[in-house]
Design a protein around this nucleic acid. Structure first.
Lengths: 180, 180
DNA sequence: ACCTGAACACCGTTCAAGT
DNA sequence: ACCTGAACACCGTTCAAGT
């Protein structure tokens, strides 16, 4: 039986860690515990290592990203929604890789696999919105788009971040009116 | 006036750090000091921060790399020498970037600039050796080759390391007999 | 002019004691 | 069933004391 305070602590810890890690990727575990208003022992009870915590944060990031699709499509054009969403996705990928060798290869792979299907679904949804209103070409494959996202991440992690202009090129390419 | 023991300590510290960091990129400063047989204070007298030390190691790496050209050309064919040398260069680039945000952007840029000319000279030397014995095309530009090296580094730092097969493609491309 | 090593504030992590 | 917080071994870094 999981107690209510435990459930609330758990949620507050990830949320706090998400903010703290966004501000400074090197915040200490004790600082996160303090900001979340729990003892260090409680933090470790829920997330037995730094790796486990950052992994949970990444999964929360992805979950929030998936939830954001609806709102983005309501407030922006499909192309702009796709641009904002992809930028956020690349940021999350960078943070995951920021873990460096602290993350076991197996864990990294399994998390990537477990998020593949919902990510494809989100991309599909935005592409279809653009196809419906005629701003995006009908022959764009969601898997291809995700593949290009990998290139964006590599560019963003490179010597100088050229990912925004690259993303601009890609979005031009999938726009209706662009040559096939 | 710089004392003899100071000069020796300095040299032994970088060399020790080079080995220790190669074995484990997260060795502590105190461990390095102990392995080098000096007190932590001495380490910090010569290299006032972790960043300064790793920077010095990187410069030593590059220096050793430049010195190795002669020997590589004696023991291997020009193409093999170029392959081994480029692989080592990409490794050094990866280690430099492994510093992450711990390295100030200015320091990273200035070190890259200061090593540019000698690196070009080394590449030129190996290309010319291959042109002399007829195994490398005569129209290969050293700057172009170095540019491609950047792509290799990005590939090596990516999700799966494809840099060796990419390097193979590049070397095939500059071989005599390959179409222009 | 340089080296030594004890010391400082802090790190990630653990665990006995509580409720 | 869970939380607290003192404690452990260690971290990067400093600095008074020595030679």
């Amino acid at each position: 039986m999981v107690r209510a305070d435990a459930r609330e602590n758990r949620a507050r810890i990830v949320e706090t860690a998400r903010q703290a890690l966004a501000e400074d990727g090197e915040v200490s575990m004790n600082q996160i515990a303090q900001r979340a208003g729990v003892g260090p022992g409680t933090l470790y009870r829920h997330y037995p290592s730094r790796e486990a915590l950052v992994l949970a944060v990444y999964q929360l990031d992805i979950a929030k990203l998936l939830d954001s699709v609806q709102e983005l499509l309501q407030r922006h054009s499909p192309l702009d929604a796709l641009r904002l969403w992809t930028t956020a996705l690349v940021d999350a990928m960078r943070r995951k890789h920021g873990l460096g060798d602290a993350l076991s290869p197996g864990a990294r792979q399994s998390i990537t696999e477990s998020t593949y299907d919902p990510v494809i679904a989100a991309i599909t949804q935005m592409l279809e919105a653009g196809q419906d209103d005629g701003t995006i070409r009908g022959d764009v494959n969601p898997g291809d788009f995700l593949q290009l996202t990998g290139a964006l991440w590599r560019a963003a992690s490179g010597p100088e971040d050229r990912s925004q202009s690259m993303l601009g090129l890609i979005l031009d390419g999938i726009s209706r009116g662009a040559p096939a």
